[in-house]
Design a protein around this nucleic acid. Structure first.
Length: 222
DNA sequence: AAGCGGATCGTCT
DNA sequence: GACGATCCGCTTG
């Protein structure tokens, strides 16, 4: 269950009363193939316990395990990607470009390495903590500032304080976990599917899932 | 509005 | 030893 928290100045997609009624998303939710989980995952909440920090998932990319040339697991299991081959619902965090972290959640039964990359969130709670994580001198005020908080895989990790050391391997479906996926009953409108961002192999495959029209989506909007 | 280059390092060849 | 599932600031149109 979520503690009550202050909504951002301009909530875009949901009302504050729903935040307190969110429930933990179970591991079985993540047993499905990546494209199926991607659709279901849009509209759910990423929650960091404590403050709390909460964002609604508005953009994800599906990666299809060992059959997907663009996936980290394409070449098989290594020390870095081992989490992906474990049970579903766990965080896979990797370090990229010498500078940024990216957060994924594993899916499919143990032994299969499908996952979803979190690409953008709509900030709902914990704006001050998010601003701090992003290295800002003061909490965001403008709508443009709000967008830059969690629009992009590296940005949302900064906002939530996600690092490989802290979060890789964490069970996002466990009640005691610091980082969780929760469901407040929100149902997204139209979902668009586009090619994935920033990859060179299999660049045309439609595997990026976005909530149509959401202002927090990163990069190309459709 | 779009395009370019720099920053910076873990991971696998 | 090369290369990213990125972000930011600066340049140009």
């Amino acid at each position: 269950m979520l503690k009550r928290c202050s909504p951002p100045s301009k909530p875009q997609m949901a009302n504050a009363s729903a935040y307190a009624q969110a429930t933990l998303v179970p591991r079985t939710f993540f047993l499905d193939p990546p494209d199926v989980v991607a659709r279901k995952l849009l509209g759910k909440l990423l929650v960091r316990a404590g403050e709390p920090i909460v964002g609604r998932i508005v953009e994800v990319e599906a990666y299809f395990g060992e059959s997907d040339p663009a996936a980290h697991s394409f070449a098989g299991k290594t020390p870095r990607n081992a989490v992906l081959f474990g049970p579903p619902g766990h965080a896979y965090v990797y370090f990229i470009y010498g500078m940024h972290f990216c957060l994924n959640i594993s899916c499919e039964p143990e032994g299969r390495a499908g996952c979803l990359l979190f690409r953008a969130l709509e900030p709902l709670c914990g704006l001050e903590a998010m601003s701090r994580g992003r290295g800002l001198a003061a909490p965001v005020r403008t709508s443009k500032g709000l967008t830059a908080l969690t629009s992009g895989p590296g940005r949302l990790c900064q906002a939530f304080g996600v690092t490989r050391e802290r979060d890789n391997g964490v069970d996002l479906t466990a009640p005691q976990s610091d980082l969780q996926i929760q469901d407040d009953g929100f149902v997204p409108g139209e979902v668009l599917v586009t090619p994935r961002i920033g990859i060179s192999k299999d660049a045309d495959r439609a595997a990026r899932f976005i909530i149509a029209g959401n202002p927090f989506i990163s990069g190309r909007r459709g």
